[in-house]
């Protein structure tokens, strides 16, 4: 049998693809930004060669497509070189988005688990509620986001909570669906065994259903945390670009600051990756505690 090697099966292929992507990005940046340089040169009445244009396309103020190193420089500049409390610091904006994400994710996950327990233990709830939970996933929920923000703002609730509510709304559905599946995953034979032990419903729940649902819970938590970040970012759009990664995106698009948009995007991607990774680590830790072999 061939064993999996991290270097051969992960690092080299993924690295190659990323390298190709970056190369394509640089070429695209040159071609997309070159017309602007030719334009300025033509307006100034001078002729420029391609060799002269090339370095300039990498260092424009407001490029059509910023080169990767420009984005990285901007991220470095706005994270390390600025005080964390400054409104120009990307860390400050990321923290605002992150706090809304985490609050919404926490409420959403708790709500989802409670509802799933109710659905599993009450048939009427199952039959009447489940179809709507599934139907609601086909609805573009994010469309509601601006209304929630503005309406809650009108009655004096602003800041963290409205954004967190959008994240809650988004993150709660995957958790319900995953948890219902998980709590139902014990087989009839295992439930019968609990029955022969004369276990109470509470004992059956804590000793059989709850542990059995853990893999399902964490799988849906991964989806939920990613989607609550999306919710928080979209929730920041209609507040008029005050603070947060979504506000950075919107402000960048108003003023044509492409480098700022891309750096906010990268920050959001990094946040999403970190959040999903944390849930993943918790997943393996819990499974290991439960005695699962990897």
């Amino acid at each position: 049998m061939r064993t999996d090697s991290f270097l051969r099966d992960r690092l080299i292929p993924v690295g190659t693809v990323i390298a190709i992507l970056i190369a394509v990005w640089y070429v695209a940046a040159v071609f997309l930004n070159a017309p602007f340089e030719r334009d300025t040169a033509a307006r100034a009445g001078t002729e420029v060669t391609f060799a002269e244009i090339l370095p300039r396309t990498m260092a424009q103020e407001r490029p059509v497509l910023p080169a990767p190193h420009q984005v990285i420089a901007e991220i470095w500049d706005t994270t390390v070189n600025k005080a964390v409390t400054s409104k120009r610091s990307l860390v400050y904006h990321a923290w605002i988005t992150l706090s809304a994400t985490l609050l919404g994710f926490g409420i959403g996950a708790a709500l989802g688990i409670v509802l799933a327990v109710g659905i599993v233990h009450n048939r009427a709830m199952d039959r009447s509620f489940m179809p709507w939970v599934i139907a609601s996933q086909t609805i573009p929920i994010l469309a509601v986001a601006p209304m929630i923000i503005v309406v809650l703002n009108a009655i004096g609730i602003s800041g963290l909570l409205p954004k967190a509510l959008i994240s809650t709304y988004l993150s709660f559905f995957p958790v319900v669906v995953g948890m219902v599946k998980g709590l139902r995953s014990p087989e009839a034979i295992q439930l019968d065994l609990m029955h022969t032990y004369n276990a109470t419903p509470a004992q059956t729940f804590w000793k059989l259903r709850w542990p059995a649902s853990m893999p399902y819970l964490f799988t849906s938590l991964k989806v939920a945390v990613a989607i609550s970040l999306v919710g928080a970012i979209v929730g920041e759009l209609p507040t008029g670009a005050v603070a947060g990664l979504g506000a950075r995106l919107l402000a960048g698009s108003y003023y044509g600051q492409t480098v700022q948009i891309w750096s906010a995007l990268f920050m959001a991607a990094a946040l999403a990756a970190i959040l999903v990774a944390i849930v993943g680590i918790a997943h393996t830790a819990v499974l290991r505690r439960m005695g699962a072999r990897p």
């Binding site: 991964k222 990613a226 999306v230 970012i233 979209v234 995106l249 906010a264 995007l265 959001a268």
Partner: peptide, 8 residues
Amino acid sequence: ALPVIGVA
């Protein structure tokens, strides 16, 4: 898993 919507 990324907020792809940000490319909008």
